[in-house]
Structure formats: structure tokens, C-alpha cells
Design a protein around this nucleic acid. Sequence first.
DNA 1: TATGAATGAGGGTTCATTCAT
DNA 2: CATGAATGAACCCTCATTCAT
Lengths: 207, 207, 207, 207
Amino acid sequence: MPRRERERQIVDVAVQVFAKRGYHGASVDEIAELAGISKPMVYLYLDSKEGLFLTCLRREADRLVGAFQGAATAGGATPELRLYAGLLAFFAFVAEHRDSWVVLHRQASELSEAIAAAVAEARVAVMAEVAGLVRAGIAEAGPAAQLSDEDADFVAHALVGAADSLTDWMARHPGQSPEGVTLRLMNMVWVGMGRVLEGEAWKPATG
Amino acid sequence: MPRRERERQIVDVAVQVFAKRGYHGASVDEIAELAGISKPMVYLYLDSKEGLFLTCLRREADRLVGAFQGAATAGGATPELRLYAGLLAFFAFVAEHRDSWVVLHRQASELSEAIAAAVAEARVAVMAEVAGLVRAGIAEAGPAAQLSDEDADFVAHALVGAADSLTDWMARHPGQSPEGVTLRLMNMVWVGMGRVLEGEAWKPATG
Amino acid sequence: MPRRERERQIVDVAVQVFAKRGYHGASVDEIAELAGISKPMVYLYLDSKEGLFLTCLRREADRLVGAFQGAATAGGATPELRLYAGLLAFFAFVAEHRDSWVVLHRQASELSEAIAAAVAEARVAVMAEVAGLVRAGIAEAGPAAQLSDEDADFVAHALVGAADSLTDWMARHPGQSPEGVTLRLMNMVWVGMGRVLEGEAWKPATG
Amino acid sequence: MPRRERERQIVDVAVQVFAKRGYHGASVDEIAELAGISKPMVYLYLDSKEGLFLTCLRREADRLVGAFQGAATAGGATPELRLYAGLLAFFAFVAEHRDSWVVLHRQASELSEAIAAAVAEARVAVMAEVAGLVRAGIAEAGPAAQLSDEDADFVAHALVGAADSLTDWMARHPGQSPEGVTLRLMNMVWVGMGRVLEGEAWKPATG
DNA sequence: TATGAATGAGGGTTCATTCAT
DNA sequence: CATGAATGAACCCTCATTCAT
């Protein structure tokens, strides 16, 4: 079997195992066995457990960001539509590749520095993408509407965090389609943001 | 040193270590050493590594939910104000006890069934609290405004997810006060939700 | 509570625990707890785990030897009758104080259930083999000679026990050949058995 | 080194160590070191300490039962002769593989020297008592009947061993009284001994 | 007399990693 | 290209034993 294919196969299995057991909980033994090869091959191809995990991480991050970007790029004429398309792609991706998302996002602590850095990098890439769309969408609303980089980043964090958490909600409501979830989220956030930019501010005293 | 105090001290240290290394990555040895005692004491007082982690989990969950509830209860006349107060308490809590939050929320996989159950329970408690406020807030808007349980749960997930993610944003913007973050989040979400309930729906076609 | 009584109480409990778990399997913690006192008291009175076990051992040995000697001395006019009385005292003692005998003679208990089962199985296999030969041998002696299964099992136990014990004797008499030992044992047991089947019964009164 | 051979080697060493120290007293570390390998190999091949012990147990039990059965089957025309052959094989086996027998039947060894000495002392006291009665009983039979010290000790060992083993039989037959058991044992042994002293000797050829 | 608090040492078990073939 | 055999290091946990009170 050619090297590339073997490598892909190993990483495929590794993503599943890492998602199920977490980084420390996963054992190279189990991954090798499920991949149907011997342990030394894993080390020959991927160097170490950390290298294997990094490869998983990068591949899945690329896939996700790719899906997001692809959908956003082809998603419509306005940034608003592109954001919608990107979020939709995100929810669709997570619905179909739950393991990938878990490996990417739910490994917070317990990781070596190198891994933590890679995780952070992957997250930043997603955030940047979203923040870009947000900023562009706002800019389109007219010269009056301004959003600092900090603000855009804030909104991106809120959006991505909400989206992440909603993957749990989706898992508990199997009937819901990614489209439905995305629509709901856009309604919750985007509409409000528009109003805010128009000057309608919420303040505690208003209560 | 009396037992209660020792116990508290051990749990204090354990929260830090679990937050830094994750459940599997943490070693009882390190916890004992940092607590300035010998390993057998940890086992005498907390039974097992799992027992220790569960104790950490429950204590921090109680603290957080308590902070949220306390602030919400005393926070104002309307659910809207109480939600604001609750979120504010959340951000303040996380700003001050980052480790607690990490232990509570960022341990997704790699956990035994008993622990996973406890984590889920803690999460559900927070969600229920938030969802309750959301539902009450909406109901107050008038008889026309209706929100199904599913919808309230959706909003709660989005809110909590956004809040979680914004703790990262806060960590990267040290100058920001919890109040500022909370205000921004309320603006993003609450205002939009009001509009939506008034009939203004976002749709892809609108783009 | 006076010292002597405390000590007796501790040793009473220790005999039970040692009998149930074996020397290594028993923990001083368990003994102290069952005795209703704290561990330091056990060490104050009995010095060490080994000291505790030795005390148990000696006390039970004295009891058993005492019972045997007492019965033998008062048992009759002839050594034969005294031996009968001594053996009777032995069986009565073991029937009533099984734990004592186990501590004195056996430490096999301290095994997990799975192991204990395997040991029992191995023993049963040997017994069955021997009992089969005994029964067959008797049957050959003619139709008049009958041996119930219970009797055959009894003889098998006696034979195997004797053989086991004689391995100690052999170890202490290196010059003895297996043939010599076997011959002696057959003489002791088989000849007697033949006579008994022919109707010659031993009774205490015969003494 | 091929797997089978390593496995055999480990079990060989384990039998020695288990025989010397008992199950709990034995440490996998020591077994691995004596076998000239590292601990993980022991676990790779034998699964666990319990698995290792069970393997020892079964192998030695098979060997012993096999030796007994083989000898018995080929041992002669009558059951009597076959029993003789079987017992002979047993004594020969134990003489040659003392460790095997200890592992199979005794776990008492795992005791410190001081304890082992005390146990031995207790046993000697009982043996001396019984041997004394036996010798006296024989002497009473008349001047012609002589029993050397060695012979008396032999009989005492056989009697005590039989009595010990019969305590198991008693435990499995709750209805039996100590009197009944003692009578049976006296019949089996004493009557035969009397005949033997009168000159009636059992010999294999007699079979 | 009595104990709560504390520990050094060691045991069973697993894991990431590497040779020799 | 591929693997069976092997291990150093570490981890969770328990135990016999001792102080300070």
C-alpha cells in the first residue's frame, strides 16, 4: 500500500480515537490496531504521538476552514450572505464530522505547548475568517457604521462560541437541519447588530 | 492542620493543576507536592483521583451557579436585568477564577462515565438557569411574544457558548471590564431577539 | 478498658481477619477498625503486624495443643484410647474454631475468588482420581465389600492429606525413597482398610 | 527469543517465586528480574499477576494429575496396584518438583522467617504429641512390636495430615460429628497398623 | 489511655517509544 | 515495507508505621 494512503488511513483512525478518548486517553496501541498495522509504522510515518495529533489537527482544521471559506466565497453577493453561507457550512461540517470538531475544539488543556499553539492557531484562523466577514458586512451598511477591529473580533468570538455550543444543541435535537440552526443564529445576532449600529443601544437602566 | 482546611487546600491546588493539565495529564503526585503534603493524604481525604476531580467539579460548579443565581436574583426587577446581572456575574467570576471555568467547561472527552455525567449535570444547571431567564424575559414582552422550550434552550446555548468563547476574548484584552463585555453581549443578542419577536425576520433572500 | 481485655479483643479480631485474608492480605487498618480502636493502640499493644500475627499463632496453638493434651491425658487407660480422645478433641476444636485452625495451618485463603476456584478445582481433580481408585479397589474385594461415595471420599481425603503431610516428612528425611514412603503408607492404610471391610471394627470401648 | 519459550521461562520462574513467597508476598518485579526480562513483558504475555498465577497453577496441576494418572493407568492389573503406582508417582513428583506442590497446595510460605519458625514450632508440638501416643500405643502391644522414632514420626505425619485434610471433608459434610470422623480415621489407620505389626505386610507384588 | 494526622516505600499496571529482523 | 519483541518511566493506589497531642 502506498505511503500516502497508509498515512491517510492512520490519521482517519486517529481522529476517531482522539475524539473519543482525548489526547492523553488515546493510546497509540489502539490507533495502530484499529488502523490494521503495527505500531512502528505509525512512528515511521508520523514520528510521535504528538506529531500524529498535530497532523490530525491540521488536516481537520484545513478541512473546516476550507469548507467555511469555500461556502462563503461562493455564498452570495453580500458579506451578510457569505457569513450565512459560512455558518451553514460550519454546522453542516460539524453535523457530518463531529469527531473532527471535537478534536479541533474540545481538547483545551492537557496538551503540550506545541499542540496548544497549533490549536490556538487553528482557532485564530477561524476567528479571522469570521471577523473579516463581520467587518465587511458592517462596512457595507454605510460610512456611518463603524466597527473597530476589536469589536469585530468580539463579535466573531461570540458567534463562534455560540456556534460551538449550538453543535451540542444540535446533537440533542436530531431533527434540526443545519439550515434551521443557522437561520436562528443569524436572526438572534445579525438583526440585533444592525439595530445597534443604527443607534439603538441596550443599557441596564433601560430594563 | 484540621481536616477541613487540608481538604480545601488540596482541592484548591487540584483545580489549578487540573485546569493546567487536564484530567489525564494531571498527576496526583504533582497535586500532592504543590499542596505541600504526601500522596496518601490526598487518597485519605478524597478517595481517588476521580473523587478528587469530582469534588473540584462540584465545588466550582456550585460557586459559579451560585454567583450567577445570586447576582440574577438580586439583579433587578425584570428578567432582562437579571439576565444582565447573571451574565455580568459570570464574566466577573471567570475573570477572577479562570481555572474554575477551565475545569468546569474544557474537559470534554477523555473522561470516565461518572465524571462525564457530573460535567454534563453542571452544564445543564447553567443552561437551565439561563434558559429560564430568557423565557421569562420574553414572556414579559407581552402575550404575543412566545418562545417554545426548544427556542429558549437554543438561545441559552448560544448565549452560554458566546459567553464561554468571550472569556478567551477577555483573556486577550486585559483592559476590558466584565461590565463592558456583558453590555456588548446584551446588545448583540438581546436587542436582536426583541426585533425578531416583533416580526422582523432575517432570511438569506433578504441579503 | 483494662489492657489485658483490650489485647484479647484485638487478637480475637485479628484471628478472624488473618483467617479470612491471609497474612499479607490482612491489613492492620481493618483489624483496628473491627476491634473498634485506633491503629496506634494495636501497635502499642502488639508492636507490629508480625508481632500481632505471632501472638495469634501462639495463642491458638496453645489452645489446640491444650485441648489435645487435656483430652488425651484424661482420655483413657491406654495410649490407643488417649489417641482417640486426642483426635476427637482436635476435630471438635477445628469444628468449633475453624478460624484458629486456618491461621495455624493454612494461609491459602488470601486469594482472589478466581484463584481460589482454580485451586479448589485442582484439588478436586486429585481427590476424584484417588477416590475412584479406592472405590474400585474395594469393589474388587468382592460383593460383600461396599463403600459409599461418602466413604470413598473420606478415604481419599485422608490419603491425600497424609501424602501431603508426608512430603514434609520426606523433606526432613532426605535418605528416604518415594518407594519406601509409598509402601509404608499403603501398609498403614490399605491393610487396615481391608480388615475393616472384613468386619473388624475399632471402637473406643475395645481399648 | 520466541514467544512460547519466553512464556515457559517466565512461568518457570514464577512457580519458584510463588512457592517461596506466596501469592501476595511475591512481586512481579522479582519474577521479571529473575526471568531476566522487564516487567512489561510479563504483562504482555500473562496479562496480570493473577493471570500469571493461574497459569502456574494450571500447568503444575496438569503435570501432577498427569503423572498420577499416567502411572496409575500403566501401574498394574488391580486398582490396588494402580493406587500404589499413583501414590508412588505423587511422591516422586513432589520430591522432584517441590515448588510445584507448594504452589498447588500451600500458600503458607509467604511468611517472614520469624513467623515461619513459629508455625513450624507449633506443628512440631502437635506432631510430637501424636508421635508419643503412637509409640506408646505400639509399645503396649507387647515387646515384639517395635517402632523406631522415625516410624513413629512417619505415622504421626500421616495421621496429622489426614486429620487436617479431613477438616475439609467435615466442612463439606456438615452432618458429620467429630466422633464419627474420629472413629472412621482410627479404623482406617489403627487397625491396619496393628495388623502390620503382626507381620502382615503389603507389597506391590501381592496385588 | 487514646487518636487524628501524616508519610516512605513499594506494588500492580500502562504507555510511548525503539531495536533487530 | 513491515513487525514481533522489548523496555524505562511514570501513574494510581495501598500499607505498615509513627508523631504530636
